[in-house]
Design a binder for these strands. Sequence first.
RNA 1: GCCGGUGUAGCUCAGUGGCAGAGCAGGUGAUUUGUAAUCACCAGGUCAGGGGUUCAAAUCCCCUCACCGGCUCCA
Length: 623
Amino acid sequence: MKIKVQKDKTIRESIEENGLKIEDFVVACFNGKLVDLSFRAPNESEIELISEDDHRALEVLRHSAAHLMAQAVKRIYKNRAKITIGPPVDFGFYYDIDFENPISEEDLSKIEEEMKKIVHEDLSIIREEITKDQAIALFKDLDENYKVLMLQEDINEDVVSIYRQGEFVDLCRGPHVVSTGRIKHFKLLSVSGAYWKGNERNKMLQRIYGTAFFSDEELKNFIQRREEAKKRDHRILGSQLGLFEIEPTVGGGLVIWLPKGERIRYTIEEFLRKKLEEKGYLFVRTPHIANADLWRISGHLAVYNKYMFPIMETDEEQEFVVKPMNCPFHIKVFQNAIRSYKDLPLRIAEYGTVYRYEKSGVLHGLLRVRGFTQDDAHIFCTPEQVENEIIELIDLTRYILGKFGFDKYRVYLSTRPDEFVGDIELWNLAEKSLKNALDKAGMEYTINEGEGAFYGPKIDVEITDALSRTWQCSTIQLDFNLPQRFGIYYIGPDNSKHVPVMIHRAILGSFERFFGILIEHYGGEFPLWLAPIQVIVLPVSQKFNDYSEEVFNFLKNRQIRVEINRDAEKLGYKIRQAEIQKIPLMLIIGQKEKETNSVTVRQKGIGDIGKMSIEEFFNKFFS
RNA sequence: GCCGGUGUAGCUCAGUGGCAGAGCAGGUGAUUUGUAAUCACCAGGUCAGGGGUUCAAAUCCCCUCACCGGCUCCA
């Protein structure tokens, strides 16, 4: 809602004069900038009042909650804690603090208690503007050396703003809620490390994460959603459902696909391969290791060295390298014959397993591993063909990801960085082609100016899962570097040699990461076409095992992934076991079914859906 | 790699200086079962690994490794 504010009046005064309540508003927006309710209008102007339902208000609340937490920390730890920065983030806020003695998660409740006290005190949050020199003096006096550093190194303005609440003062742009009493529903979540200014050469500070909401209900919802996400954790489901394991004696980041996980992977591989072959991709298979010289020519040993496992030496003084990428091999495939323009675009695909030396601390289940298989492909084409290739690729990507229920995307186009290889005209043409392709495909996208790789521009696709979290899987990268380094060419219509453009692309990214995302997306409840066990036959007692075998064999012969539970257990127990394994379909076999030559179907999550003949069941779910 | 936390049976966890424990899963037997847990018995351990303190260590201290929450980085 908008109100008029007289010259030299505060927004707060105007709210009251308009017969409105301060409590109904959080901050205001003046000339497109968020301001405090204590803001004094420089001239008569229209101001937008922002209430709690606006997402900008939530950010302000969380920013104020960060200050509230910092104040509580200062009260408890005095100058054994130095505050640095404390912004809002998408799920809450954090504050990076340099503690003399490290704190742990157990200390959070103590800090929360102190925060509640400060909320109860309902301290006014007051903005002041002072000169930079005054600010430096103030924070020197307070012994807040990080604030002094920020003022000296990062802030160019002559006048800065500070916010006071009771005895606490922070350097901050604001705006903030009017008083600490407004921050009622909050929770501290975790404590972790974070480098000062995000640079790994700098000192490690401690970061406390928290969140805040306007209502208790929203806070409870948030906590519940977090718990739901935790239950869907692919690492937990992966071991519960027997999908994969990562085992210390094998090594961190090295995945063992267990029979059920591999069953799913194989289904995905087949589905994708069939589609790619339809689209003119040619599948190849290449070695896991290669002569180090290959990687010298490609330039990887120089540029990508820190992600590569060390060179292996043999007693014949040859050097081998485990591949971190598939591209040099696909270049060799291109070079296997003299290529004509008529061969282009040449689309070489491989489920290529690569190994990258990732720092131990970054490994994370299936989402960040050291050995993984990319659904990789390299398209060799002319610069003119790029646009059409990208359009087809976007189409294909949408089809493939859509099959798994991913239909919301965020697309990023990264353009030429300051340091680059290749012709600037080629870059311009390529970037134009990528933009045209995205436009023609009707994709909305964000341009990341200068964020491309040194060897070419790229398109990254982020998908949104069932819990609204985003993941990067698909990537399309143009490469002007490798074709040149390997000197590959095709013969054009003019009968002379031309250098092709190389497009690196992956749709799923890697089977490992994609599987991890998929497990969480489905919460372990895979749709019928992916489920490792699609049907389980459950005899009511062992008396019906014979007829159950008949049912089992009927489905088995039709390539259904079916199992049978022959145990001497009660039906309820067998159903429970099947439910825990998240098997989509259960067939109950007892006296009634045997007599009428039928099956009773129970669908996971739905229950009994009735009796039918086995043919009927097969047609209903599998034809 | 860095900061903090955790590591006990296949899994989930109890045990905080004095005999190594439970539930689930597993095996055996009994039960022959109608829509989310039948009963009994049995087996299962380098208490992550190594070193130290102590009469005595799963427990206290040090080192190493792995994992978890993050930072940095990424498919």
